[in-house]
Amino acid sequence: MSRIQTVFEQLKLQQRKALIPFITAGDPNPQLTVPLLHALVEAGADILELGVPFSDPMADGPTIQRASERALKHHVGLHHVLDMVAEFRRKNSHTPVVLMGYGNPIEAMGWETFAKRCAEVGVDGVLTVDFPPEESHEAFTHLEAHGIDPIFLLAPTTREERVAQVAKLARGYVYYVSLKGVTGAGNLDLSAIEQKLPQLRRHIKLPIGVGFGIRDGATANAVAKLCDGVVVGSRIVQEIEDSNEQEMVANVGRLVKELRQAIDN
């Protein structure tokens, strides 16, 4: 059983929902990434989404764009990110790590090499934001061959036929984008999520995580009631941006602990 599957099965037994925080690798500098990942786990994260910095993050709002820019100032590339996961795995063998980013850095490395490296260092899933199912054949083949879960996005605007198509390819969990917009936008509509989920459930047998626009405990709690996992990205990245380096790990830990408590309530 994959690490992602194991986590969701355990949570199900405990009747709890997954907390899935996101940070960008190398933000604010490469030395802090692994300590931050451990802090996220200690604070109650179930799965970690680790952003691969990219020069042109089209689907991201200003907060995560700036995180990418900070990481790129340190020239953090995909192979560094894989090294960071390897380092994280020395002390943690149970928490799933999902790499999230854009396709071009992976294209540059080559999907076969990338998938092989993912398996070696202990990456569990890969979410390639700008590779919809239509363009994911090569990616899927190589990830599948190395036991890496391809994670797909679904959106409020996704038609039901496409939901069915994603259901066939997706492994691990499916990430439902809760609003129309970029990451970090603030117009999340709970009733719209509630309406869309039954349609998703008809096709998706995997756990469904919901993200984009979850900025506080109250929203996290409300969203958690509707799905299997809550993804929080921009709010955490904002905390990294607002903290000085000495207090950053503690501040991020405190924030994630609050989210954990809110979700479990």
Binding site: M58, A59, G103, V129, D130, F131, P132, E134, E135, F152, L153, L154, A155, T157, T158, R159, R162, V177, K180, G181
Partner: peptide, 11 residues
């Protein structure tokens, strides 16, 4: 091809 996030596929 069509290399965009799912959020744009509908449009």
């Amino acid at each position: 091809g069509i290399y965009v996030a799912e959020t744009l596929m509908g449009a």
